[in-house]
């Protein structure tokens, strides 16, 4: 399983470093450039989301490079970018190494900062992609689902209804949509949905804090399950699309106030 609720967005590092850095980036081998970004994203998001604790020492360079499957050169570049973002500090000498350094901001504020990294147009597009995935998954699931296939979805709805905090709610929300894609018997839709949830999952924390909206989402999910159960593909598609469009709309509305 991948880190499912780690966003894969590192756009706030782009455009920094001046013309020299930009030129170097342009002419870096494509593959290695992508790897640096992938490492920055992975570790940076893990830190921002609290998966790695403040002050925690990261494994040594060669070990970390081995774990991530990248060269030490790539890893060093990534660590440099993380230092520039203030997420990692490096101490030299005995007892030295790279340490996680959590930004001095509460989680909610960090998430808002993250949301500011998205334009409303990008959020709208994210919502469109999500609606396409979940809508199609719901329609296919309605055609391909036997009675026992719905158990995980029902369990997720009940878990959502009792999830205490926004982070737990967003995880279960995302899992419901992954399970829906699995109920469609499509490995591709499922993989896409997992990837999409790594982007949208943390952002959803921002809108799932109120019990009122948590209940609304749970109800919308129940309606999707009923349509799937009734083998009504068109209705399942529409209900799933409405559910995720509504969440995307809330994110966009919030983004426009920031």
């Amino acid at each position: 399983m991948k880190q499912r609720h780690v966003e894969s967005d590192a756009r706030d590092t782009s455009g920094r470093g001046g013309a020299e850095g930009a030129r170097r980036a342009v002419f870096a081998p494509v593959e290695s450039r992508a790897r640096v970004e992938a490492v920055v994203r992975r570790i940076g998001d893990a830190i921002e989301l609290g998966l790695l604790a403040d002050g925690e020492q990261l494994p040594g360079e060669s070990e970390l490079a081995g774990l991530l499957g990248v060269s030490t050169v790539t890893l060093r570049e990534a660590l440099m970018a993380l230092r520039q973002r203030g997420l990692v500090t490096t101490r030299r000498g005995r007892g030295g190494g790279s340490f996680v350094s959590l930004p001095e901001r509460p989680g909610q504020e960090r998430l808002r900062a993250r949301l500011r990294g998205w334009s409303s147009e990008e959020l709208r597009d994210l919502g469109d992609h999500w609606a396409a995935l979940s809508g199609t998954a719901a329609a296919l699931a309605a055609e391909r689902t036997g009675p026992d296939d719905l158990r995980p979805l029902l369990r997720s709805v009940e878990e959502l209804a009792t999830a205490p905090d926004a982070a737990a709610r967003s995880r279960v929300y995302g899992r419901f949509h992954v399970e829906l894609a699995a109920a469609a018997q499509s490995a591709r839709l499922t993989r896409e949905q997992v990837t999409l949830q790594t982007e949208v999952g943390a952002l959803l924390c921002l809108v799932l804090a109120t019990d009122e909206y948590r209940e609304e989402v749970a109800d919308r999910h129940r309606a999707v399950i009923r349509a799937v159960q009734d083998e009504a593909p068109d209705s399942a598609r529409t209900l799933a699309e409405r559910c995720v469009r509504e969440s995307a709309a809330r994110l966009i509305a919030l983004r426009l106030t920031l």
């Binding site: 894609a181 490995a187 499922t190």
Partner: peptide, 12 residues
């Protein structure tokens, strides 16, 4: 199965 194994392999 057959089922989409999104826990371990992401494969059908």
């Amino acid at each position: 199965g057959p089922y989409v194994d999104y826990l371990c392999s992401d494969e059908y």
